[in-house]
């Protein structure tokens, strides 16, 4: 290796190091705090790492139902992802491939729907859920989450549909496929990376949603993770150790999943960004 090469390598790692320092330092602090006792957390200018490692915060977090909440969040996030993709893939195909009047209006209104503050919508949506007898049940969340997952998913998926040349579809139709058959057999397989990327996007947004979760769910056994974090904020004090333990549990496992799916995801997001 030449000196120039070594220098180049070195500077590359230096940049990575700087970037990592910004993102990782708070995370290490979080994990380290999660292993400190309350006495250690409340030590003025205490050491970065615990002097005595304790699992107390994890005990508290799991005794409060963190495991159950993890499961609840997974159920809600997976269901929302499936339902949104199902709805969005069809609509997105329609707004990408079929000429009809009002198409632009639909695309724009999808963006506009994202501008409305939740506080305006929440009481009317709550009343709808009450009428449907869905309060304090997961479907109320899944349905409410569609308000923000579908529009974004339609937009993301649209760029994938646009990247599939229409010739491929037309060729299939010349071979005797109906428009519908061509869609199922030819187009869908081509946008699988797009579905994966959009799906992960929806999953992640649902995973951290707070407002609907705390409004609709009232039985602690049904809480999702963000609603569960609230349990550690008491009227007279916040249990920071337990919050950090919960935060560690709710962010590390999904990231591992992310690591495993990364390659596919990144090629997926490339198209979602509008690259044709």
């Amino acid at each position: 290796m030449s000196v120039a090469m070594v220098l180049k390598r070195g500077s590359q790692y230096l940049w990575v190091l700087l970037l990592m320092a910004f993102f990782v330092t708070p995370l290490i602090w979080m994990v380290s705090t999660s292993f400190k006792s309350a006495g250690q957390i409340y030590t003025a200018n205490g050491p970065f790492f615990p002097t005595h490692w304790t699992l107390q915060n994890y005990h508290v977090a799991f005794a409060t139902g963190l495991g159950r909440m993890f499961l609840n969040s997974t159920i809600v996030a997976v269901s929302t992802t499936v339902v949104s993709l199902l709805f969005a893939v069809l609509s997105s195909y329609a707004v990408s491939r079929i000429m009809f009047r009002g198409r632009r209006m639909i695309l724009v209104s999808m963006i506009l729907s994202q501008l409305i503050p939740l506080s305006v919508l929440i009481v009317p949506i709550y009343q709808i859920m009450a009428q449907l007898n869905l309060l304090d049940q997961f479907p109320s969340l899944v349905i409410a989450y569609l308000t923000f997952s579908i529009p974004v998913a339609v937009w993301f998926l649209r760029s994938f549909f646009l990247s599939v040349p229409a010739e491929i579809e037309e060729a299939a139709r010349v071979d005797g496929c109906s428009l519908f058959q061509a869609f199922i057999r030819v187009v869908i397989p081509l946008i699988v990376p797009g579905l994966a990327a959009t799906g992960i996007y929806v999953f992640v947004t649902v995973w951290q949603e707070l407002m609907f979760a705390i409004t609709f769910l009232t039985t602690p056994g049904k809480y999702t993770l963000p609603a569960g974090v609230i349990l550690f904020i008491g009227q007279h004090g916040t249990n920071f150790g337990a919050v950090m333990a919960a935060a560690t549990v709710m962010s590390i496992p999904p990231s591992i999943l992310f690591l495993l799916m990364q390659k596919r995801l990144i090629s997926g997001f490339a198209s979602a960004g509008g690259i044709k």
Binding site: L19, M20, F23, V24, P26, L27, W29, M30, V204, W207, Q208, L210, L225, P226, V229, I230, I233, T238, F240, V243, M244, A246, A247, M250, S251, I252, P254, S255, I256, F258, L259, Q262
Partner: peptide, 17 residues
């Protein structure tokens, strides 16, 4: 993937952190 952890973390947890 380490960089993505903050994005996955719920906003309440990140705010408290």
């Amino acid at each position: 993937s380490i960089t993505f952890i903050p994005w996955i973390m719920p906003g309440v947890a990140a705010g408290l952190l």
